[in-house]
């Protein structure tokens, strides 16, 4: 009834009886190319027309340089802040039970759901010198709106969910028996936390930090209203792209965009490296 032989072979695709591979993969590749790859390639082509020296020239223009410095510098500090508080929030939401926990858990995703322009004007009105928080800050001599402090606040807002959501599932997966073992072996709670619980979370915290950083560097909508956009002080790189475009300075816009793209891909690579390391070291991502 059955006469058969099967030999393992190297091939592009493992054979399968499930239909539709050609159709769905073909469609996927076509759409991906048209929507994502081709337009991105246009930027790369345009930028390579400028050459490294062309990009360098734009980047070292004082106004561009200061915008890049603001974007990267503030985003770094904001991502750090988001990571610290995000980890606390993730810990509290996963480990403690208290009334309203689920609602607070849902609130964390607000920056994902709230359009950036809405967040932007809300933050601007809150932190303006006559705003609810801005007025209080003014009393202690802090100018939030229209300074890098405002940019920092918007970036924390936008980066926070990344910091929380990358760490949260890992905290949930911590094996309680490991903590009990540590306690039985005589460790204090603080010792257990710092020596047993936290180290495996580091890759996730770093990943969350990198995601928040990348998001902060590229963010536009929630920042421009609160930033004041003073050249050399509180002007961010994405805004400068918009300005260059409105001046039909395509080369300038492309140069800044290329630098930003390079940074976000480096960040992506960094995240992949963390995860590869984490898989080797801890057996999970």
């Amino acid at each position: 009834m059955a006469v058969a032989s099967v030999r393992p072979k190297r091939r592009f695709r493992q054979p399968s009886v499930i239909p539709g591979f050609g159709l769905t993969l073909g469609y996927t590749l076509t759409v991906l190319s048209l929507i994502v790859l081709f337009p991105l390639a246009a930027l790369v082509v345009r930028a390579s027309g400028l050459g490294l020296s062309g990009i360098w020239e734009v980047a070292t223009d004082p106004r561009v340089f200061s915008a890049l410095r603001v974007s990267f510098g503030v985003s770094l500090i904001a991502a750090l802040t988001a990571s610290v508080f995000g980890s606390i929030v993730a810990w509290v939401l996963t480990r403690y039970d208290f009334p309203g926990r689920r609602i607070i858990d849902a609130v964390v995703d607000l920056p994902f759901a709230l359009p950036t322009a809405v967040a932007g004007i809300a933050l601007a009105s809150l932190y303006a010198p006559n705003g609810l928080i801005g007025a209080q800050l003014a009393k202690v001599g802090i100018e939030a709106a229209y300074t890098p402090v405002g940019i920092f606040i918007a970036m924390v807002f936008i980066g926070l969910p990344f910091a929380v959501r990358t760490v949260q599932p890992l905290i949930a997966e911590i094996d309680r028996e490991v903590e009990e073992a540590s306690a039985i072996l005589g460790s204090t709670r603080l010792g257990t936390l710092t020596k047993v619980v936290l180290p495996p979370l580091i890759p996730a915290v770093l990943t969350g930090f990198a995601l928040a950083f990348a998001r902060g560097v590229g963010e536009y909508g929630s920042i421009i209203f609160i930033a004041g956009n003073l050249p050399y002080v509180s002007e961010i790189a994405p805004l400068l792209i918009v300005i260059k475009l409105s001046e039909f300075d395509y080369a300038g816009a492309c140069a800044i965009a290329t630098i930003m793209l390079a940074i976000s891909f480096t960040t992506l690579l960094f995240i992949n490296l963390i995860q590869a390391w984490s898989r080797r070291r801890f057996g999970y991502v």
Binding site: M1, A2, V3, A4, S5, V6, P15, V17
Partner: peptide, 23 residues
Amino acid sequence: SGKTTLLRIIAGLDRPDSGRIIF
């Protein structure tokens, strides 16, 4: 040992490189 593979070949879920299935 290949028993599940054989079963799946009979079912038509996997395809043999050579040979025949006769019902």
